[in-house]
Design a binder for these strands. Structure first.
Length: 471
RNA sequence: GGUCCCAUCGUCUAGCGGUUAGGACGCCGGCCUCUCACGUCGGUAACACGGGUUCGAAUCCCGUUGGGACCA
C-alpha cells in the first residue's frame, strides 16, 4: 500500500487560527500515525491579501505547536507555470474551452438563471465555438451536462451532486491567473497528495475538483471533510469570540500539547479518553472516529485540559514555557533559588502558566505587601510569640528541607500548645502577603533560607510596631 | 433564492436494534486539610419533534423544525 500523503495549505492572509490549527493537526497526526508524509503548502495566490508577515506568523504557530512537515513549504505564487501547463493539457484534450463572454454578459446569464429559479451559472455560450486563446479570453472547464458526481467522504459518507448543478467554471482568468479550485487539484496531484483532510466548508468545491481529477486522468484522493469549529454562539469562530490566533494561546500560558489535545478531542474521539499526550495522539488518531457535527470552542474545557497537562509535566519541562511569561511580567527567572522548585509548588493550583506567574509573584518580590484584610485577622499581637519562636527554630536549621522544617514547626507547636493552623497562617502571611498559598513547608523550601528569615523577622517587627496596647 | 451538511446533558462526546443512556468540562454538596488548590466521593443535566420499519428503536427510513456551509 502506498504511504499516506497529507497536506496543510494555509492562505497567508492572517495568523493561524484555531480552525486552521485543527486542520493542520488532523493532517499531521494522520501522516504521523500511518508513517506517511505531511506537506506544507502556502496558498498565496491572492497577492493582494497575502503578506510575508502572515507567512511568518503561520510558521511561528506551527513551530510552537511542534507540527513539522516533511515536504515544502511550497508557495503557489511561484508555481504559475505548472498550473498553466496543466491548463493547456485540459484545453488540448477538450476538457476546457476558451470563452470571450464579457463579465457583463455572464452576469446577465446569472440573473436570468436565478430568475428562472435555477442556480446562477454560465450558460455555455462559448462551449462549442471552438475558440482559441485570444486577448480577454478566460479558460473554462467543460463540466458534464448530465449525470452525477459522487463524493465518497470518509467522515460524511456518500454525497451525490447533480452535474447539471455544476457550472462551467473558469480555471484560468483573462489575466492569465489560474483559479483556486484548479490550482488546488493541480498541486495535490503534482505533490502526490492522496488524503485530503479539510474543513467541511470545502464540500461544495469537491465535485468540481473531482471533475478536474478525472479530466486529468489522475487518481482521486481520499476525502475527509471535518466539521467546523464554532464560537459559543454557534456561528463561525471569529474575532468577536476573542482570541483566534493560535499564538495568543501560547501567550496566555497554554501548553502546546494541551492545546493540541483539546483540538484533537473537538471533533474526534477515542472511547472515553480525554487526556492524551502528543505520542498517544499519534498512536491513536485515525479517520474512523471523526464526528459529523460542528463543535463549539469551549475555553473552560481547554483550561481544564491545560491544568491536567501542567500537572502531568515535570517542573523542568515547564521552565522554557513559563520563562517568557515571567519576563513579560517583569520577573527574572534567576531571581529565585530554584525556578523548578517554585513551579512544583504551583503546578496543582494553576490552569494556565499566566496564572502560575501571577501566583509566583511573591517568590520574586523584594518585600511582600500584606493583604490588609488578612492583617486584621492574622497579625494580632498573639501572633508575635509563635512567629518569633519559628524564627529562632529556623535559624538553627542549616538546610531547609521539608522534613527539617516540619520538625521545627512541630517543636514550636509542642512548646506553645498551638495547632499548626495558628502558626502556619501568620507565617504564610509573612512570607506571601496572602492567606492562600502552596503548602507552608514547600513554600519555605522554595523561597529559600534568606528570604524566609528576612520576611519572618520583618513580620514580627511589624506586629510589634502595630501592637494594640493592652487596655 | 438554490445546492449540500448536521442534530445525545449548557459544552465536548461514548453509543453503531435490546444499556438503570456511559465518560469529561462546568455547576452544586460531602470528605481530605496549615490556607488555597490537587485529590476523592456523591449530585445536577440529554436522545429536537412527528410519522413509519421492527417483538423491540438514541440507533434504520421518511417528513417537520432548528442550526451550519457554499454559490450568488
Amino acid at each position: 500500500m502506498d504511504p499516506i500523503v497529507t497536506r496543510f495549505p494555509p492562505s497567508p492572509t492572517g495568523y493561524l487560527h484555531v480552525g486552521g490549527a485543527r486542520t493542520a493537526l488532523f493532517n499531521w497526526l494522520y501522516a504521523r500515525h500511518t508513517g506517511g508524509r505531511f506537506v506544507l503548502r502556502i496558498e498565496d495566490t491572492d497577492t493582494v491579501r497575502s503578506t510575508q508577515a502572515s507567512v511568518d506568523a503561520i510558521f511561528e504557530a506551527l513551530r510552537w505547536l511542534q507540527i513539522d512537515w516533511d515536504d515544502g513549504p511550497y508557495f503557489q505564487s511561484r508555481r504559475t507555470d505548472v498550473y498553466l501547463d496543466y491548463a493547456r493539457r485540459l484545453y488540448e484534450t477538450g476538457h476546457a474551452y476558451y470563452c470571450t463572454c464579457s463579465p457583463e454578459a455572464v452576469e446577465a446569464m446569472r440573473q436570468r438563471a436565478v430568475a428562472s429559479g435555477a442556480n446562477p451559472r454560465y450558460d455555455g455560450t462559448c462551449r462549442e465555438r471552438g475558440l482559441g486563446t485570444e486577448p480577454g479570453a478566460v479558460l473554462r472547464f467543460r463540466t458534464p451536462a448530465s449525470g452525477t458526481t459522487v463524493l465518497d467522504d470518509v467522515v460524511k459518507g456518500s454525497i451525490v451532486f447533480q452535474n447539471s448543478e455544476l457550472d462551467d467554471f473558469v480555471i484560468v482568468r483573462s489575466d492569465g491567473m489560474p483559479t483556486y479550485n484548479f490550482v488546488v487539484v493541480v498541486d495535490d496531484i503534482a505533490m502526490g497528495i492522496n488524503t485530503v483532510i479539510r474543513g467541511d466548508d470545502h464540500v461544495m468545491n469537491t465535485p468540481k475538483q473531482m471533475q478536474i481529477y478525472r479530466a486529468l486522468g489522475a487518481r482521486l484522493p481520499v476525502f475527509a471533510h471535518v466539521p467546523m469549529v464554532l464560537g459559543p454562539d454557534r456561528t463561525r469562530l471569529s474575532k468577536r469570540h476573542g482570541a483566534m490566533s493560535v499564538t495568543a494561546y501560547r501567550d496566555m500560558g497554554y501548553l502546546p500539547d494541551a492545546f493540541l489535545n483539546y483540538l484533537a478531542r473537538l471533533g474526534w474521539s477515542c472511547g472515553d479518553q480525554e487526556f492524551f499526550t502528543r505520542q498517544e495522539l499519534i498512536e491513536k488518531f485515525t479517520l474512523d472516529n471523526i464526528g459529523r457535527s460542528a463543535g463549539i470552542f469551549d475555553l473552560a474545557k481547554l483550561q481544564a485540559l491545560n491544568a491536567d497537562h501542567i500537572q502531568a509535566s515535570t517542573p523542568e519541562a515547564l521552565v522554557p514555557h513559563i520563562s517568557p511569561i515571567l519576563v513579560r511580567n517583569g520577573l527574572a527567572p534567576g531571581d529565585v533559588p530554584s525556578l523548578p522548585r517554585v513551579i512544583r509548588t504551583l503546578q496543582p493550583r494553576c490552569k494556565t502558566l499566566e496564572e502560575m506567574v501571577e501566583q509566583a509573584r511573591f517568590y520574586f518580590a523584594d518585600e511582600v505587601a500584606y493583604d490588609p484584610e488578612a492583617v486584621k485577622k492574622i497579625f494580632k499581637p498573639t501572633a508575635f510569640d509563635p512567629l518569633q519562636r519559628i524564627v529562632e527554630a529556623l535559624e538553627r536549621i542549616p538546610v531547609f528541607s521539608e522534613a527539617a522544617l516540619e520538625a521545627a514547626f512541630s517543636a514550636v507547636m509542642a512548646a506553645t500548645g498551638l495547632k499548626l493552623g495558628k502558626i502556619a497562617q501568620p507565617v504564610r502571611l509573612a512570607l506571601t502577603g496572602r492567606t492562600a498559598s502552596p503548602g507552608i513547608f514547600e513554600t519555605i523550601e522554595a523561597l529559600g533560607r534568606d528570604k524566609t528569615l528576612a520576611r519572618l523577622r520583618r513580620a514580627a517587627a511589624w506586629i510589634q510596631a502595630h501592637a494594640v496596647p493592652d487596655s
